[in-house]
Amino acid sequence: MEIGIIGSGNIGSVLAGYLTKSGHQVYLSNSRGPSTLGEIAAKTGATAATTEQAASARDLVILAIPQKAVVNLPIDILSASKAIVVDAGNYYPSRDGEISEIANGMTDSEWVANVIAHPIIKAFNNIVAPSLASKAAPSGNPYRIALSVAGDDKAQKKLVMKLIEEIGFDAIDGGILSESWRQQPGEPSYCQDLNKDNLEIALQQADVSKRAENLASADELARPYL
């Protein structure tokens, strides 16, 4: 597939390496321009690109950026794209500022979908970068880490889940996009390196009445690192 990744931080760079190794054509971009991506491109095998080039990828576009950067994306390109768009980010108010729609109950990826005027699949957000980089495992390993994939289009979810399996992790269907809060900061499934069975349990354990409280706690814990 032709895949664009917007964001060259820890998650974006690791995914670029995995996906290139799997045989996909990957265009990696950041806000500073392709001239700053030489080292990462050489390491991962991805092609250094502009954000516009990555957003124009034919099959899949992965957004691996802070929530506050979403408004600076090439929205005209993304809104017209026929590619699957995956949001791998997480909303942290102390970093991203208060977003009223999310504070009032919208999931962060629903907000992203509204901003870019394109459907979103939520994936790659419930694992920390070091685990993503080092804990891929063969299929059938009982300790293989599972990732949750949420979204409203079943065919698109299935394709993203296949990619996750391909790079060395299990994948489970996390439900529709409005349920993606279950895999977000502060919830039982978030960054716990769970196998498939335990991730299923953790998603169901999430309590919507504690959603705001859990996000606030996660935000406070993450504040020194953001």
Rank of each mutant, 00 (worst) to 15 (best):
I3A: 03
I3C: 08
G4A: 03
G7T: 04
S8C: 07
G9S: 01
G9N: 00
G9K: 00
N10P: 11
I11C: 05
V14M: 05
A16K: 00
Y18C: 02
S22K: 07
G23V: 00
V26W: 05
L28K: 00
S29H: 07
N30V: 02
R32K: 11
S35R: 12
S35N: 06
G38W: 13
E39C: 04
A41T: 03
K43Q: 12
A49N: 05
T51Y: 06
A55I: 05
S56E: 14
V61A: 01
I62S: 02
I62P: 03
I62L: 03
L63A: 05
L63V: 15
A69N: 14
V70E: 01
P74E: 08
P74A: 09
I77S: 02
L78S: 00
S79W: 00
K82G: 07
V86T: 04
D87N: 01
A88I: 11
Y91L: 06
P93K: 00
S94M: 14
E98V: 13
E101R: 02
I102G: 13
I102A: 08
I102L: 14
I102T: 12
A103N: 15
N104K: 11
M106A: 15
E110C: 05
E110K: 02
V112M: 01
V115W: 02
A117W: 04
I121M: 08
A123L: 11
F124R: 13
F124G: 12
S131V: 12
S134T: 12
A136N: 09
A137C: 13
P138S: 06
R144F: 05
R144K: 10
A146G: 10
V149I: 10
V149F: 05
G151F: 01
D153V: 03
K154I: 13
Q156T: 10
K157N: 06
K157I: 09
K157M: 12
K158A: 12
K158Y: 06
L159R: 11
K162N: 07
I164W: 03
E165M: 12
F169H: 03
D170I: 06
A171Y: 07
A171L: 14
I172Y: 02
G174T: 02
L177N: 02
S180G: 05
W181T: 14
Q184P: 15
Q184T: 07
S189M: 11
S189W: 09
C191I: 10
D197E: 15
E200P: 15
I201R: 07
I201N: 10
L203Y: 00
Q204K: 10
Q204D: 14
Q205L: 11
D207R: 04
A212E: 07
E213M: 06
L215I: 09
E220T: 06
L221A: 08
A222G: 00
A222F: 05
